[in-house]
Design a protein around this nucleic acid. Sequence first.
DNA 1: AAGTGGTCTAGACCACTTT
DNA 2: AAGTGGTCTAGACCACTTC
Lengths: 273, 273
Amino acid sequence: MVKLQSMNSIIPTANNPTIAPTTPGTGVGASSLSASPTFSPLYQQIKALITQSLQSGEWKPGELIPSEMELASRFKVSQGTVRKAIDELSAENLVVRRQGKGTFVATHHEARSQFRFLRLAPDEGVPHYPENRIIEVKRMRAPAEVARLLDIKSGDSVVFIRRVQSFSGVPTILDDLWLPGAIFKGLTAERLNEYKGPMYGLFETEFGTHMIRASEQIRAVCADEAVATLLHVDVGMPLLNVERVSFTYGDKPVELRRGLYLTVNHHYRNELS
Amino acid sequence: MVKLQSMNSIIPTANNPTIAPTTPGTGVGASSLSASPTFSPLYQQIKALITQSLQSGEWKPGELIPSEMELASRFKVSQGTVRKAIDELSAENLVVRRQGKGTFVATHHEARSQFRFLRLAPDEGVPHYPENRIIEVKRMRAPAEVARLLDIKSGDSVVFIRRVQSFSGVPTILDDLWLPGAIFKGLTAERLNEYKGPMYGLFETEFGTHMIRASEQIRAVCADEAVATLLHVDVGMPLLNVERVSFTYGDKPVELRRGLYLTVNHHYRNELS
DNA sequence: AAGTGGTCTAGACCACTTT
DNA sequence: AAGTGGTCTAGACCACTTC
């Protein structure tokens, strides 16, 4: 009996993993492995395999993935093991489970996930999505700092976007974005302007790049003249400076964003738990 | 056979719940319940019971709770059901599992959880805990806004604390705190000053109040004269204004905190996922 | 060796959705 | 009725810690 599933290195890049079934019916669930330095539970390996399929585009955002039973039979493990793998993927918002329907690949084209990456909420009333105005779109060579954060080479092509978002007509967010040119070919101001809805939805549909997580650093700054003009505020107005790096599958950085938030009638909301 | 565990209202405040065991050996895991409007899975009820014991102080922060087997036998359910309940409590940071040792009640007296509620990190170098200087401690009557957020009556007694926290001698955080006087009796500047380590650790040990989560609203503001003096910065310096309400078991608010963060060499870190 | 949590399986039934 | 995920149980073995 082959029993190799407890080595991390076992999972190959090829399609047919060496994960072996365990003797069924006897209750010998886990294989008889010795203490190995790189122990990885079966469900983690299954999780990695499913993630690979997500990354490779085998199942696209919004699509239904195979049922737990189907995956269990594909990977030759029990349904419970697949379940535990999907549990974690669901907790990380990579997939969404719907009882009675199945498990779907997470997508940004849903009201449900609209506010996962937009933390600015009104002081009064219910959150709603801002209006979008594209100020500028251009291609440029990546400055050293931008290149470092996007994990590309200094001088590589990047797409620069500047936009202003407004709530009920009041300019509130000034965003500067830098995107790797290699991924976002053909991104124009027109495309951004005609597209209604969250930008990450467009990235997902048009450029096959699904953002799965982001890391933000927040500081307080004062508006300079250029910023003051765009946000219709006085020079010196205190603003939140939110620097974000967004990642797609495989923890690959694919967006750098510097947002300036006017927090007179809004606040950045965060839950600590 | 009594089978009532699927009604939310079944869990009494008394110690002996009406959760009934299911027929063992037959594989009839779930009881034969009809669709009930307030369906609550067994493990959720177990979770609620464990939370009650945490809240009542049956098991105090840092202490070992009974093993899964023991809890399973106490509640007359399978170990797997207890496990699922504890899984969630662990995910919510109410308890900490340690393989081979047992499950412990979460405590703020641990390096592990020091930075769960302190999100200000240095731009360079590794995070470390700030030095503490208590500026003022006094009892006062709660203003309307403070009372509202603490869910007490306007005019009720509250403890007010002002402190400055410094990193490597540089004043960086000015905190104003309001605590319900009824809970924090006998809290003095001396106690706060002699105590080394996180304030939530002191609250936990000395006042039996364990913070489990907090909600923050962040804005950008400018330093006024009083603030500028305390933080050794110029008037008008942009600062993060972090308003926090902290909760203990049962989602009861027990702390209101307004922090002003100097973000010249530090930033507020947030992971979006 | 004994006890703890961690993993894995197998099988049953429940709740929900679609056919 | 059939298929999906959700819950519950029972039992086995593994990894880790303590005695």
